[in-house]
Amino acid sequence: MPAKIAIIEDNAAFRKIIDIRLKAEGYDTVVAEDGLTGLEMVRNEKPDLLITDLMLPGIDGHKISRMLKFDQRYRHIPIIMLTSRDLEEDADIAKQCGADAFIVKTTKARIVLDVIEKLLHKVTDFRETA
């Protein structure tokens, strides 16, 4: 069964691009355009990985990450935080709130896909040893 990836991104065009790209790579996707809906979606869909924008209306990426990582039921879901800024502080905050990776939006698709693969396998490994 293909891995299921949840996407939370408020920019419609960029959301479409991630969605098409991930589907083309054979993943299942679910999408949301704001933090609150996104959080609900993650809770209902239990995806294998979450890609979320950092700056979102309502609940932002940091809060989403913190809420999921503090919850026993969801903390195993790896989180990739996307940003259009590259401010170094952002990377630190992303790490502090538990995100597993922090990626600038203009990064090459290939690199992002590699990160996704790695995170998906790390979780599998983790589950096997646990």
Partner: peptide
């Protein structure tokens, strides 16, 4: 950067034949 990311993503998808 946001519009650039959209442009880059779209053009890359086309170039990759998706």
């Amino acid at each position: 950067r946001t519009p650039l990311a959209v442009m880059k993503g779209g053009v890359s998808l086309c170039l990759d034949g998706v």
